[in-house]
Simulated scan of single mutants.
Amino acid sequence: MALQGKIIACGAALTIYAMILRFVVGPATMALGCVVLGLRGNVLRIAIIQAALPQAVTSFVYAQEYGLHADVLSTAVIVGTIISLPLLIAYYAILDIMS
């Protein structure tokens, strides 16, 4: 990822779209799946927070190796890691208030 020319290599619109998918749609889908399966309490909270964790660098390595949108994954990993800490704290606080 350090070889990328810019931190946001795929454009602002695609970056925003990826972050919405990562931090809103992912946890919402996980919550829906957990409710359908009957998971409640701490297990539900842990699953939602796990879904909001940033992507691993491994996904970028595979994308780079196979030529599959490495610039998009590079941006998602970098920006997702930067954004994830405050969002994970917010998710934790909101889930704690809801219980």
Rank of each mutant, 00 (worst) to 15 (best):
Y62A: 13
A31G: 02
M98I: 15
L3Y: 10
S59G: 11
I16M: 08
I94H: 14
A31L: 00
S59K: 14
V25E: 05
T81W: 03
V24A: 02
Q50N: 11
L53S: 10
V61I: 14
I83V: 14
V25D: 04
V72A: 06
V25N: 03
L53K: 09
L37N: 11
F23M: 03
T75C: 01
A90W: 12
A28G: 06
M19H: 01
H69F: 11
A76Y: 06
H69C: 12
A63S: 10
R45K: 14
A63K: 00
Q64C: 11
Y62M: 13
T58E: 15
V57T: 13
L3G: 13
G80I: 01
A13F: 03
P86K: 01
A9W: 07
L68P: 03
R45G: 06
Y17P: 07
A2H: 13
L73P: 00
L37R: 08
L37E: 07
I94D: 14
V77N: 03
A52S: 07
A76D: 05
Y62V: 12
L95F: 07
I8E: 07
N42K: 14
P54G: 04
R22F: 12
V35Y: 12
I78N: 04
Y91L: 11
I82C: 08
I48Y: 01
I48L: 03
S99C: 15
A52W: 01
V25F: 01
A51L: 05
A70G: 06
G38P: 04
A93R: 15
G80W: 00
I89P: 01
L68K: 09
A28D: 05
A56Y: 09
C34V: 02
Q50K: 12
T29A: 15
A18S: 12
A56I: 09
A90H: 03
T58A: 14
I82Y: 05
